[in-house]
Structures are given as C-alpha cells and as structure tokens.
Amino acid sequence: MPLIRSTYGKGRVRIMRVKRDTERHEARELNVTVLLTGAFDASYTSDDNSSVIATDSIKNIVNIVARDNVGAETEPFAAALATYFLDRYAHVTQVDVTATETKWVRIAVDGVPHEHSFVLDSNGNPFVKLAATREGVSVTSGIKGFTFMKTTNSGWENYWFDEATTLKPTADRMCATAMDASWRWAKAPASYPEANAAVLATVLKVFATTYSPSVQNTMYLMGEAVLAAVPEIAEISMACPNKHYLPIDLSPFGRSSDGQVFTPTDEPHGQIECTVGRG
C-alpha cells in the first residue's frame, strides 16, 4: 500500500529569549512546534532512518536559532527557523513552524514601565470568599494564578549544602511565579475594587524594585507593604510556586547562552507559602 503523505518533527519546544544588551530587557517566551516534510518515506516503509533528522536535533536547532535571533519578533524568528532547515538539509522540502507566544507586559511602577519586570497579559482570576453567621461575616478577597516575572535582580545563595545539594548558587537569575494570594478584611474599605487594585500594585512594585535574595524574603516584603498600603486588611496569605527558566547549554554548538536563552518549566516547582499579619 502506498504512503500517501507524512510529516514529523518536535512539539512543545518551550523557549524564553531575553534580549539584555541594554538596561531595558525584552522578554519573549514561545512554545514552538516544527514539522518537516521531505524525503523521509523510507523510515516509514522500511527500516531506513538514514535521512531522518532526529527530533532531539530539531529541538537543539530551535535553541540555536533562538540564541542567534534573541531580539527577533515571532514572525521573523519563525522564518529564520524554517530557513535554517531549508538551507542545511536538501532533502527537506517543507518546514511548518507554529510558535505560540506567552505574552508578558511591563509592570508599571508609579506609572512608569519597568525595565526588567513583567506581568502576564490577561492575568489572574480574582475571587471572593464570604462566611456569614448570625454573629458576623468574614470576607476574604484574593486572586489565583497572578503571574509576574523579572529577568534579573534576583539570586539564590548561602543556602544549606549537603550531599543532596546539586543546585549552584547565583546572584543573577530570572525570577517568576504564578501567585495565589488571599487577604482577609478587618473592615470594609471605602472601595473594594480600588483596595484590591492597590494590593496588586503594591505587590508588583515591591517585586520589581527590590533585589530578591529568595522568593521567601520577597513574599514577606510584599506582605508587609500590602498591610502598610491597605490598612483595612488584617492579614495576607501568599503561595508562590517557582516558574523556572533554566539556562540552555549551547556550548556544544559553539555558542554561549549569556543569560539570554532559557527553557521555561514549572514542573517540578518550588512551592513557597506564607501569611503576613498585624499580630
């Protein structure tokens, strides 16, 4: 029976590019699928794999092209990726690239867009929990999955070392989280929408403008600042799972990541939680 058509490739290649040649960083996160069509029929109809470009190699090429095109918008990046395959592999007749962007927008601090701190576009799911009895009412507001990131001004050093420790310390890393937070009201504010907006604005300002020696310390500082900014809040609880961006080792390909090309991953993640109250 004839093989009518075929294609193959690599899917869900997640790549974060950070253009950081100036103080104003540009962050671009993509989920990339590359499919190749060409002279690959023998790998389907027989045991001949001689023409097949390994899907792991396809993933490596996505990383290589990302490093060589750190500042490119998505469309030129996809074109450069397709060109890489067509220029190097004569037996590839068609390259299909799908690149889906995770959109990050700059955090505004006092109305000014920040240089290296970002918030996820269309971000978070606000919620309210109310418990009422004849004796009284307890109101808690919050948000789930509120996602923000900065490309520098974060580190992780001087932690416990023993035989299980393999993580290397660093004074300059990306820091990102999808925060679940809730804040319990001691009394009603003049405006719940305005007070809730002040909570998030305060969290982002602290995150963007302070060096983070740990997620733990940053969370505590955010909690302190929220209680100072919104006096009607009795306490705030936060859970901040790490969204990791792992530097890609491009040395086998004669390139350095230079803190600009990363693999995004959130599995497994560090889960850090705390509650800050007025005592």
Rank of each mutant, 00 (worst) to 15 (best):
M1T: 12
I4G: 02
R5D: 15
S6V: 03
T7C: 12
Y8M: 05
G11H: 05
R14D: 10
K19F: 13
R20M: 00
D21N: 10
R24W: 06
N31R: 12
V34L: 03
L36I: 08
G38L: 06
D41A: 15
Y44E: 06
T45H: 09
D48P: 08
D48Y: 08
S51V: 05
V52Y: 07
A54T: 12
I58R: 00
I58T: 11
I61T: 10
I61W: 04
A66M: 08
N69E: 07
N69P: 00
G71K: 04
E73Q: 11
T74A: 12
T74R: 14
E75L: 14
A78V: 11
A82P: 03
Y84S: 10
Y84M: 06
F85P: 05
D87L: 11
R88M: 01
Y89N: 10
A90S: 13
T93S: 15
Q94K: 15
Q94C: 10
V97D: 04
T98P: 01
A99Q: 07
T100N: 09
T100C: 07
E101Y: 02
E101F: 01
T102E: 11
R106Q: 02
V112F: 08
P113Q: 07
S117W: 00
S117H: 01
V119R: 10
D121L: 11
D121V: 02
N123H: 00
G124Y: 08
N125F: 09
N125P: 00
P126Y: 03
F127C: 03
F127W: 09
V128D: 11
A131E: 13
T133D: 09
E135P: 00
S141R: 10
S141G: 13
S141I: 11
G142T: 07
G142H: 03
K144E: 13
G145R: 09
G145I: 08
F146S: 02
K150D: 06
N153Q: 13
N153L: 12
S154R: 00
G155V: 05
E163R: 14
A164R: 11
T165M: 04
T165H: 08
L167N: 03
A171N: 10
D172R: 05
A176C: 15
A178Y: 01
A178C: 03
M179I: 15
M179A: 15
D180A: 11
A181E: 02
W185T: 12
A188L: 15
A188S: 14
E194I: 07
A195W: 05
L204A: 04
L204C: 13
T209D: 01
T210Y: 05
S212N: 07
P213M: 04
P213H: 06
S214K: 04
N217Q: 14
L221Q: 14
M222R: 06
E224T: 15
E224C: 13
E224I: 14
A225H: 04
A225R: 03
V226I: 13
I233W: 04
A234D: 13
I236E: 07
S237M: 05
N242G: 11
N242D: 14
K243V: 13
K243P: 00
Y245D: 01
I248T: 07
S251L: 07
P252A: 07
R255H: 07
S257M: 09
S257Q: 14
G259N: 11
V261G: 03
V261A: 03
F262L: 04
T263G: 04
P264K: 10
P268Q: 07
I272S: 00
E273L: 04
C274L: 13
T275M: 10
V276H: 08
G277A: 14
R278C: 01
